[in-house]
Design a protein around this nucleic acid. Structure first.
Lengths: 135, 135
DNA sequence: TTTAAAATACACGCTTTGAGTATACTTTTG
DNA sequence: CAAAAGTATACTCAAAGCGTGTATTTTAAA
């Protein structure tokens, strides 16, 4: 029940970008050194953030990454799911068939978990990087 | 970011006990068959619930397990942490030294996560098995 | 007092996931 | 064209998740 190391790195990365002047471009190498994240590992992570539409990448000489949105439009939820995939407290919540197909009426518990999960997700969505850097 | 299979089994187990008449005793073998949980695995899991004070075990012939508390006193939180250990969205939240010792001011993010985690835990604590079986 | 049914302890094996590394390739500016 | 960036793919290593096996201890009942 925790965020992965990669997810934690990603939060650090997006926080870093959020503090730059809007539109400022940074190369992975620089990011790697200033945030203490292994370069190779960072590159894969940046790719995920790019695919998720959080960053934009520029290839070639003088390339790098810039924020694709304003910090106000990026939430903790966006970053975490971009890296670690969708949040599902248990399998049943992501595919109810797994539960009903299975012998038991455990779904009473899963329903309760679902409610809690919904609130958890909303909480993560409510915290944007704009709010975080404003504190 | 999910509950383990073992944790899910445990929820099923406690739900099962909660539906019995108070003080009713069940052997692991019976539990294993009716809930479709591998016996060997179940035994370890039951041990954890016993150590956590959720179940009481009786050894020897005619032994088995009974609830150590009423369903009203057992929450989703109790069961999940008994099996999967404490909930910590990231390492920093369980040992702040890990974060401050580390080069970055990422803790702004971690503070936000901490708030969300607190609410998440409260939510899990608020759902007792009495409530679940009442629905 | 022996026997059998239960829980307990400990240790092993397999598979998946997390974390990070290596190599080769493509794009783009100068 | 050369060099500096990002991209793609595949690999290694360690830890965790999930489950199994064997031997031991406790205890009710015959």
């Amino acid at each position: 029940m925790k965020i992965t190391q990669e997810g934690d790195y990603a939060l650090r990365v997006v926080l870093f970008f959020s503090k730059l002047s809007p539109g400022e471009k940074i190369e992975a190498r620089v990011m790697s050194e200033s945030a203490c994240i292994p370069l190779r590992f960072l590159l894969k992570l940046l790719r995920k953030l790019t695919v998720a539409g959080i960053l934009r990448s520029c290839r070639g000489v003088g390339g790098g990454y810039i924020l694709a949105k304003s910090p106000a439009e990026i939430s903790l939820f966006d970053v975490i799911t971009a890296i670690d995939g969708p949040i599902n407290l248990n399998k049943c919540l992501y595919d109810p068939a797994l539960c009903t197909a299975a012998h038991s009426d455990i779904c009473e518990v899963h329903r309760a978990l679902g409610t809690i999960q919904d609130r958890f997700i909303k909480d993560l969505q409510s915290v944007t990087f704009e709010k975080i850097i404003a504190e």
